[in-house]
């Protein structure tokens, strides 16, 4: 019953979020602000994690391939597949759910308890639209770019680690990352990213927007935002993988 209450309230909030913007120029300005706030500021953490994870995947792949019958270019191939199919779109989005999701929930939650949202409403502003729509639009726009950068850096990290550790040669790795390439997998990955961007921002905003009480409740909203965003990301990852790859 509680679950249905939250689902209903979530969709009612979304209805308000996607109502006609009151002043488009201000919304556009806010979207640009959120692209920077949500996206660009996340770049350093994504870069660091991607390079390290690429290196780790490469070493693990090389370690797992102990049969002389398997060519060493499989190291590059495995790294590419892991990063494009799962690591960058799903794991990086889980990390972003922690960073961006908690930020959104606590920001909106703090605005709620300090009556800033009430102030917007009394001014005649659709507070849900003004506060949440730019975050969703900004994330849906910028996340695919962040993930593309993550993919590139992950594969690059794998190259650095693979070659420097002697797990494979430069030629073998570069050959591996180009072998049996199916561009359709990018379509699958980026569809996931767009869905996850929507989930992270809208679910986190939902928890922040419905905060009541004080600082303790803002903390709870922030935690709930990360927990539920992460669960939904994994659920939708499974659903989308079944739709796209289970043929």
């Amino acid at each position: 019953m509680n679950l249905f209450f939250h689902i209903g309230r979530y969709f009612m909030l979304l209805y308000r979020v996607f109502s006609k913007p009151q002043k488009l120029s201000i919304y556009i300005r806010q979207i640009i602000f959120e692209i920077n706030n949500i996206g660009i500021t996340s770049l350093p953490i994504i870069a660091i994690i991607s390079v390290f994870m690429g290196g780790i995947i490469t070493i693990q792949a090389a370690h797992a391939i102990d049969s002389p019958l398997v060519p060493l270019y499989a190291v590059g191939f495995t790294t590419r597949e892991s990063i494009i199919l799962e690591f960058s779109p799903t794991i990086v989005c889980l990390i972003l759910a922690g960073k961006v999701g908690s930020n959104i929930a606590s920001e909106i939650g703090a605005m709620r308890i300090t009556e800033q949202i009430d102030a917007l409403e009394i001014m005649g502003i659709n507070s849900a639209g003004y506060l949440i729509f730019p975050k969703i639009a900004g994330a849906v726009f910028i996340f695919p770019f962040l993930i593309a950068i993550s993919m590139f850096l992950g594969i690059f990290g794998g190259y650095l680690m693979g070659v420097s550790s002697g797990a494979c040669t430069s030629y073998q790795y570069l050959f591996g990352i180009q072998a049996f390439f199916d561009p359709g997998k990018f379509y699958y990955s980026f569809t996931k990213v767009v869905v996850f961007a929507f989930i992270i921002t809208s679910v986190s905003a939902y928890f922040g927007y419905n905060t009541s009480g004080g600082a303790l409740e803002v903390g709870k909203s922030s935690t709930n935002a990360v927990v539920y965003s992460s669960i939904l990301i994994l659920l939708f990852s499974l659903i989308l993988t079944n739709i796209f790859l289970n043929t």
Partner: peptide, 20 residues
């Protein structure tokens, strides 16, 4: 219509409610 009236309302909240 409510929004039209609200545009004519100013409110001073107890804590100020300024946008941080």
């Amino acid at each position: 219509e409510k929004q039209d009236i609200r545009k004519k309302i100013g409110m001073l909240f107890q804590g100020g409610a300024l946008f941080d």
